[in-house]
């Protein structure tokens, strides 16, 4: 136990201020947290749905929870069930084989709900396009509030997309 605690102590706090390209550092994080509380009166819960990605978007979604970005420390939490979620974070393209499951997840998410499409494939079907096996972008299947392009989008871009969706809903 002692080596473990020593390691934790030595690592320290790594969480970085969330920087928006057009704004000064530091402020953005606090504002995000304040806005979230103002809008929702509580934390934001997200159900991530992979509707057909190559799995790179999911690697970056995981990265949002690393200590540098520390999404959960900002009151934003990934949940297991869409019934517990305020927001669906969806990567694409939406495959034919996932279309029904994605629609059911959307129906299970309580209103008012937000949908954020992530990745080039989620935004406009990307390199895969529409085909016999692909329904295309998330917005071809669901109403989408915010799109976060990138192949894959960086953790920072996704965090800004989540914030933008919350702002819009205000």
């Amino acid at each position: 136990m002692i080596p473990l605690l020593r390691h934790i102590f030595r690592t320290g706090i790594l969480t970085e201020p969330l920087q928006a390209p057009d704004e000064g550092p530091q402020r953005e994080l606090e504002r995000l947290h304040d806005e979230l509380l103002g809008i929702l009166g509580r934390a934001l819960t997200i159900r991530e749905v992979d509707a057909g990605s190559c799995n790179a978007c999911e690697l970056e979604v995981h990265a949002m929870n690393n200590p540098y970005y520390n999404l959960e420390g900002r009151g934003i939490k990934f949940v297991a069930s869409p019934r517990h979620a305020d927001m669906l974070l969806v990567s694409g393209p939406v495959t034919k084989n996932m279309e029904n499951a994605l629609l059911r997840a959307y129906e299970c998410t309580p209103d008012p709900k937000l949908v954020v499409a992530i990745g080039d494939c989620g935004c406009d079907a990307g390199v895969f396009g529409k085909s016999y096996a692909s329904c295309g972008a998330i917005s071809d299947v669901l109403p989408v509030d915010v799109r976060v392009p990138g192949c894959p989008p960086t953790p920072l871009a996704m965090m800004q997309g989540i914030l933008a969706a919350v702002r819009q809903a205000k």
């Binding site: 992979d50 057909g52 990605s53 190559c54 396009g129 085909s131 016999y132 192949c151």
Partner: peptide, 27 residues
């Protein structure tokens, strides 16, 4: 469930487009 028709997209593609697709088979 992840079947998005990658193999068909290669048909008739040039080498550069093939490289772009193959790098996204499993990210």
């Amino acid at each position: 469930y992840q079947h998005k028709g990658v193999e068909r997209l290669f048909v008739g593609a040039d080498f550069a487009r093939g490289a772009q697709l193959v790098g996204r088979v499993s990210g």
